[in-house]
């Protein structure tokens, strides 16, 4: 177990370096950040030179990257051109996005698996057909359409929950954005769970569990669902990335000042420190989440345990 984790952590190093270097190169390909900073005005050569020196912009790109990474390890993400430290931006943006993602992920897991289980246990029934149709509808409509429609209906017209998530973020104000963000993934999880539950309910070990005289509830939860979750967990792991990506869109609809908001600002202003800093943390979060899911997968299925 320990060796497995260590190996996975070591595997992350090249992935981490690769992704961060790539984003570093891409941000610099956007153009000269100093020119962007001054907009239409011609920059004062002396000031421009000072800024270039301060942000190591005269060094070759690989050296800039090495210096940047060196600072990162001292938790120094640099400053924006306007003088704010990037760490302070991270500290305001990430909690908001993580909260939104957590709410959405919880909704996805609880309702996705719940609907899938009900549907898979009663194949062909009313509940099953409703789930099949509803999930198909959700999957085929783009998220931002669902987002704006739900925001208008539930938030504006009926006023059940706040239409935009203000500051500070409350669980209640994150409910609607969470549902919107979760919707498509939830539909996939429900369908996947339904399929595996339906398939496994014919499995020999489920028959054995019944023959042992276990109560139906125990057969379903301890044997049927437990085994059916293995592919679902894999999907949830790969989906976590998509969920955070989707969060950037959902944040715009519901005016949440999260990662998406600051990343957008950073790109528009060609502020490399902001963009690279935010993306670096995103990469770390993805990698950690994937490791966690892989470990969970190994816990769920002893046959593949730490092979």
């Amino acid at each position: 177990m320990g060796r497995y984790v260590l190996r996975r952590l070591l595997q992350m190093i090249p992935v981490f370096i690769g992704t961060t270097f790539l984003i570093f190169v891409m941000v610099h390909a956007l153009g000269d950040p100093v020119n962007a900073l001054f907009g239409d005005k011609a920059p004062d050569p002396a000031v421009a030179a000072q800024i270039r020196a301060q942000y190591n912009l005269n060094d070759p790109l690989w050296l800039q990257y090495v210096k940047y990474m060196g600072n990162l390890f001292r938790w120094d993400f640099g400053t924006t051109f306007s003088g704010q430290t990037v760490t302070s931006l991270l500290a305001t943006a990430y909690p908001a996005t993580l909260k939104l993602t957590a709410v959405a992920f919880t909704i996805e897991v609880v309702f996705g698996i719940g609907f899938g289980l009900i549907s898979g246990l009663r194949r062909g029934g009313v509940a099953d057909n409703s789930v099949l149709i509803l999930t198909l509808v959700v999957i085929s409509i783009p998220t931002f359409v669902t987002g704006y429609v739900l925001q208008y209906l539930i938030g504006v017209k009926w006023g059940i929950v706040p239409a935009t998530a203000g500051d500070p973020l409350t669980l209640q104000s994150l409910l609607l954005p969470g549902i919107v963000l979760a919707s498509v993934s939830l539909a996939y999880v429900a369908r996947l769970t339904r399929t595996t539950v339906a398939e496994n309910s014919k499995a020999d070990y489920v028959r054995t569990a019944t023959a042992k005289g276990l109560p139906r509830r125990r057969v379903v939860i301890n044997h049927l669902l437990r085994n059916s979750l293995i592919p679902v967990v894999t999907f949830l792991g790969t989906d976590l990335g998509a969920l955070m990506g989707g969060a950037l869109v959902t944040e715009r609809i519901f005016n949440i000042h999260g990662v998406g908001f600051y990343l957008y600002q950073g790109i528009v202003r060609q502020n490399s420190n902001t963009v690279v800093g935010f993306v670096t943390i995103l990469v770390i979060v993805f990698l950690a989440a994937n490791l966690l899911v892989d470990l969970l997968y190994a816990v769920l299925d002893p046959r593949i345990r730490y092979a």
Binding site: Y205, R207, T208, N227, D301, P302, R303
Partner: peptide, 10 residues
């Protein structure tokens, strides 16, 4: 078939 009749995850 004992292999398929026993639950692989317990």
């Amino acid at each position: 078939d004992a292999l398929s009749s026993l639950n692989p995850v317990h």
